[in-house]
Design a protein around this nucleic acid. Structure first.
Lengths: 189, 189
DNA sequence: CGAGGCCTTGACCGCGGTCAATGCCCGTGG
DNA sequence: CCACGGGCATTGACCGCGGTCAAGGCCTCG
């Protein structure tokens, strides 16, 4: 697990072995069963997760109770309810294991502490934020410019893993269309 | 102009006078007339703009030629085509003055140079990225969860300046609805 | 004063949502 | 090992939001 995380970090920034082991020492392992809710709205336990195995789903809940998926995180991805992580306020999004998972997590406090004591960690966070921003913008753009069929085709191209590995229900939810609509557009194409 | 920018920066990070003047020295003034295109798609001149006076509009162009506004930046705001700024690739978005503007800009190269030589500048960029991410996420969320009327009401609440100061056409474009639809929902509410 | 852009209103329509019925698959317990 | 139940997928019927097209009035600017 820790070697996967090391690789992830060293792929992104130049960091000395000493600094790397300081960073790693703040990550703790966590195992979660399928369907388990790892952190939920209104909870103040903000953490950043590294997925060593399995898949996480980040979603928020609409006033009417409906859930909307913002993101899936498969193996070798970081993931967090980033808006709450940034603001330090209560969680606005839930994180759920949708497969049996092996995770490493770091608390928000420890993460921000590392920003102070390991200068190069700031660069890591920068690249994380930049990537999150670009992903978000692309997703926003796809909702603004594409209809349901085009969004589905784009997802197949750019992230086939989501379509192949997850249930139609989850895929439809991620595309923000109904299960029925996804079923129909699949049968046409 | 430079004092506005100083205030903006010192409001966000603790920075010594010396470092501040280094930072300021990389910003250059620019005046733009209403409707002027300041930087456009396919252009590689990536800059970050500080709006001292007037209003900028950042938009991208759909394959069919339609324009979609991602963001307006009024006085005392930073603004850039951030995805291109991050990636260093060609611009994917255009920036246009929609009023007569007084701007300060810094080139992408100089900006990244500052990240190396003025360590505290990294914190400034961090806070900028965090804010951009949160804004983007809220906007994405509003498209996913709200219909046209609700999006309009939310905009009135959170950013009345946009509605009051800009033409219906621009507002409708920002909300990603047709001018006609905006006209109708205004007359009902 | 004319032309072009913006705003409004009406008519029409298509995408995708909801509701409902049915079928399928799979996990669980008897 | 089979029977049952619950969740997921598919299909049909229906409908409403918001888009497009078109026409008319108004304001602005050259």
């Amino acid at each position: 697990m820790y070697s996967q995380l090391s690789k992830y970090i060293t792929n992104r920034i130049a960091i000395s072995d000493d600094q790397l082991s300081v960073v790693l020492s703040y990550f703790k392992p966590l195992v979660a069963k399928k369907k388990e809710l790892i952190s939920s709205e209104g909870n103040s336990a903000r953490r950043m997760y590294f997925v060593a195995k399995g898949c996480l789903r980040i979603y928020f809940v609409k006033p009417d109770g409906a859930e909307v998926t913002r993101r899936f995180a498969f193996e070798n991805r970081f993931s967090t309810s980033l808006v709450s992580f940034i603001s330090g306020e209560l969680l606005t999004e839930n994180t759920q294991a949708i497969e049996d998972c092996e995770l490493l997590y770091i608390s928000r406090n420890d993460f921000y502490y590392l920003l102070e004591v390991v200068p190069v960690w700031e660069k890591f966070y920068r690249s994380y934020l930049e990537e999150a921003y670009v992903n978000n913008t692309n997703r926003l753009q796809s909702f603004i410019t594409l209809d349901a069929t085009e969004r589905y085709k784009l997802l197949l191209q750019e992230n086939p893993q989501i379509v192949l590995r997850l249930s139609n229900k989850l895929v439809a939810n991620y595309l923000n269309i109904s299960q029925e609509a996804l079923s129909r557009l699949k049968s046409k194409a």
